[in-house]
């Protein structure tokens, strides 16, 4: 499944348990992130035993509404007691500065940078 615009692409690979996020995500508010939230929720429901992987290595920008929406998804994972692994890029400053916030919301969030 895929959500694709001229600014960003969200691609869910069920077999690999990966949601890949690329481009620039600067939507107006949390309401506008609803489709992405629903895709993530579907991926979470599909995934049991092994962690769901959020690959953000190609996500150049994410605004605070996006961080807020992803945070709500992390809280949902916490409620479901599911594992989640976030892959970031050490060459994208916002990721180095702000991805750690997801770990503070849920101790089972694993973050790795490459």
């Amino acid at each position: 499944m895929e959500i694709k615009t001229d600014k960003y692409t969200i691609e869910y690979n069920k077999k690999e348990r990966i949601v890949k996020m690329e481009g620039t995500l600067r939507l107006q508010g949390k309401d506008e992130y609803r489709d992405i939230f629903e895709l993530l929720t579907m991926a979470a429901n599909d995934t049991t035993g092994l962690p769901l992987i959020l690959d953000m290595k190609g996500l150049i920008f994410l605004n605070s509404s996006g961080i807020s929406s992803l945070s709500l998804f992390i809280l949902k994972m916490r409620k479901l007691d599911k594992d989640i692994a976030i892959r970031g890029s050490e060459s994208i400053p916002w990721q180095m500065k702000s991805l750690k916030n997801f770990q503070k919301l849920y101790g089972k969030v694993e973050i790795s940078f490459s």
Binding site: G29, D31, N63, S64, S65, S71, L72
Partner: peptide, 10 residues
Amino acid sequence: KRKSGIGLIL
């Protein structure tokens, strides 16, 4: 789910 308000905090 509408309010956010974390931008300035971040």
